[in-house]
């Protein structure tokens, strides 16, 4: 999986490309938690080019959301393909994770 990182008005944006599974989730977790340790409080995860997510990927997103909440920060998830979104729904995560349609929606939420 490729992770493209950028920053816009103090918001850390992660664009995921490929597959977020038990193999790749650790690298992503490290990146996110490094940013949280460095003081980042606002994050957007762009799922547009993510083809696949498993429970290992959900676990990282959940952990990051909890960590940011403790720091009074926030995370937004955007642009999911339908079948990726379905995984969040089956897991019941869509009830407490902020999932929005587009990157603009995500940026406007901060």
């Amino acid at each position: 999986m490729e992770i493209i990182e950028e920053s816009q008005s103090g918001i850390n944006i992660y664009r995921l490309n490929g597959r977020l599974d038990s193999n790749t989730s650790q690298g992503f977790e490290k990146k996110i938690f490094q940013a949280i340790d460095d003081g980042s409080k606002s994050m957007i995860i762009d799922f547009k080019n993510l083809d696949y997510i498993s429970s290992a990927g959900l676990r990282v997103i959940l952990k990051a959301t909890k960590a940011l909440k403790r720091e009074d920060g926030a995370i937004m998830l955007c642009d999911m393909q339908d079948y990726v979104k379905e995984v969040f729904e089956i897991a019941g995560f869509d009830s407490f994770l902020p999932i929005v349609g587009t990157m603009d929606d995500a940026l406007n939420a901060f």
């Binding site: 498993s54 429970s55 290992a56 959900l58 676990r59 959940l62 959301t65 909890k66 909440k69 995984v87 089956i90 897991a91 019941g92 995560f93 009830s95 407490f96 994770l97």
Partner: peptide, 18 residues
């Protein structure tokens, strides 16, 4: 428990549930 809040949410058993 899928009706939980984010604080209560546990990841165990989720893979099999999926």
């Amino acid at each position: 428990d899928l009706e939980c809040t984010i604080e209560e949410c546990r990841i165990g058993g989720l893979g099999i549930h999926l």
